[in-house]
């Protein structure tokens, strides 16, 4: 059944009969598609940062602003405010971001030890107080954080299973529009990518937005710069 190659041929034949075959024109037609929408923002830096901050607050995320020298103390402030004493961290997160008075566990286990059982690791992550990561890029217009899952952004499970996600976003990672944000991924498109716009949410019950279902219910963002 699975190796039924006639299905593929059948479907492609039906498509050819229905839509015709104009392979030659594909690239020129694609290049000519109308893209008159905004591909670049027009706001200045301060406005972009303010927009990003406001969007995150709209989503019920906690937002902190600090300069590069204050990251560790801002992380501490955020953790204090949430009553956290330890967090999981990604392998390559800069040490100087981490305040000494809390504990941080490097936990991208499968990278280090591919043979280790996922399920045991998931259970471990599930028991954690939360996770701290950086990000790859961010979009102000939609209040979106883009994670490219490797290095400082962590594996997908790591930013998903814990109930608390503390994300450090550097000012120069923030762009205004969605096209600019996705353009930053050029060359990395085939890495796992997650975009996060606020904490997990549902409106399935009477269209009332409920913060937090399965993903982290609490999201704090530290904007640096």
């Amino acid at each position: 059944m699975i190796s039924d190659s006639t299905a593929r041929a059948d479907i492609l034949l039906k498509i050819r009969l229905a839509a015709g075959s104009h392979s030659d024109a594909l690239e020129t037609e694609y290049a000519a598609l109308p893209r008159t929408y905004r591909q670049q923002g027009t706001s200045d830096r301060a406005a972009v940062l303010t927009m990003f901050t406001n969007r995150l607050r709209d989503y019920d995320a906690g937002v902190y602003r600090c300069n590069a020298a204050e990251i560790a103390e801002t992380v501490a402030a955020a953790m204090d405010a949430r009553g956290k004493t330890s967090l999981l961290r990604t392998g390559k997160l800069p040490q100087e971001w981490l305040p000494a008075k809390f504990r941080f566990f490097a936990s991208d286990v499968r990278n280090a030890n591919p043979s280790r059982d996922d399920l045991a690791w998931f259970a471990e992550v599930d028991q954690s107080e939360g996770v701290i990561t950086g990000c790859f890029a961010a979009v102000a217009f939609t209040g979106t954080i883009i994670l490219r899952h490797e290095d400082g952004n962590g594996s997908r499970a790591l930013t998903l299973i814990p109930d608390y996600h503390l994300c450090v976003v550097l000012a120069d990672q923030i762009v205004e529009t969605v096209p600019e944000g996705l353009a930053r991924l050029k060359g990395f498109e085939t890495m796992p990518i997650t975009t996060i716009s606020g904490p997990s949410a549902t409106a399935d019950i009477e269209m009332t937005r409920v913060k937090g279902v399965h993903g982290p219910r609490f999201l704090d963002v530290i904007i640096v710069g």
Partner: peptide, 21 residues
Amino acid sequence: ATGERMNPYNSIWTGVVPGDG
């Protein structure tokens, strides 16, 4: 769909990545 600027999560993945997923 939901009247949000961006839905909370988009997942984009390509094939299989060792060590993740």
